[in-house]
Design a protein around this nucleic acid. Structure first.
Lengths: 190, 190
DNA sequence: CTCTTAAAAGGACAAATGTCCTCAAATGAT
DNA sequence: ATCATTTGAGGACATTTGTCCTTTTAAGAG
């Protein structure tokens, strides 16, 4: 809860009273390893702040393989943004890969926050802006870096993920097969 | 000008009077083929609605090659979003690849719009949301489709770009070399 | 601890892509 | 129109990655 307050304060000035008002709109949710926060083809009604844990975002590609697009770690928001914004069926699933604690708000309550609180008009846009920047960075990485560079970046930016995720999921995140990830690891360990 | 009004109306209800107020914040700008709208390493102060023409967004990657990340066509916004949002130096350049007409607003005026107009608080967030969705789609395409599929998608979604852009730029957009694009074209033409 | 099952590493060959070219077609200037 | 220069197509070979396996290591159940 305190983590969430710190996170919001880093985005926009928010008083303790405003935070108390805000927090009533959110509910706590815990996920076990393997449980889903969002399921593909269902409309995503919620957005969550990750207090603790790790989630994996993936979809089924046109070759019927699971493709991991993102590992979500603590102190950030997660949702299937497109589905949430447009309130249409999600093309992503989001699954906990370890025990995970969330602070969750649903779509209707977020709209209420936007309309009841001037500060949230701002915070809302700023969060979307930040997510845009993350997505742009992600796209730039996809474009710019080969699988080995992506692996080294993951190792640097989200080292815990390397321990917690399966080889299969890391490989699909890097856009290569298990075989190639195996070769990369061989090189990296010199 | 009328195109811009239609575009805004498709986003949020806006009256003719509100549009008249809005439009005073924008200025017209024309670019010749080869001229830049944004230059890498400079802070991007402007966002533009493309009335007519085509622009290419690119950056210099870590192998000192130009990588094309986007072709921007009419009836959409363009800017170096990260640079514009954070007012920090841009890692992208945006260049007209043919004669192009823009409606431009600078950062300070956009902030004024946000603060002076309730409707623009909304429009602002919605535009960022839409750009996020575009970027997410782009990232999904990068992840999910091979170069041939990307080529066919470009052919379908932005067919004029295939005519107007250089082979080199299309190849870097697809993430392959000229040689591979040549092979793809050979296959596509059966 | 041992057996069973699942997950990761790595060998051998095939397929795809890149590198380095040459040649043909298109474009511009005189 | 002619020549020079730029741009696209494609050949030959090297390198990278994928596919299909087998071997090795790790994890769970009894």
């Amino acid at each position: 809860m305190d983590k969430f307050k710190q996170f919001l304060k880093s985005i926009a000035p928010i008083t303790d009273d405003e935070f108390e008002d805000t927090i009533t709109f959110f509910t706590e949710q815990n996920l076990q390893k393997g449980e889903f926060f969002v399921k593909q083809d269902k409309v995503c009604r919620h957005i969550a702040f990750i207090v603790k844990g790790t989630l994996r975002t993936f979809y089924i590609n046109n070759k019927s393989e699971e493709t991991t697009s993102c590992f979500c770690t603590e102190n950030s928001f997660t949702t299937s943004y497109k589905s949430f914004i447009l309130q249409e069926p999600s093309n992503l699933s989001i699954q906990a890969i370890e025990e995970t604690e969330l602070l969750v708000i649903d779509y209707d309550n977020l709209q209420k926050l936007y309309h009841s609180s001037a500060i949230w008009q701002n915070i809302g846009r700023i969060i979307v802006e930040q997510e845009y920047i993350e997505m742009e960075k992600y796209a730039s990485v996809l474009n710019n870096e080969n699988a080995k560079e992506k692996y080294l970046r993951l190792l640097k930016e989200q080292p815990t993920v390397i321990q917690k995720a399966k080889v299969e999921d890391i490989a699909s995140y890097l856009g290569v097969t298990r075989r190639t990830l195996s070769r990369i690891r061989q090189e990296v360990s010199k």
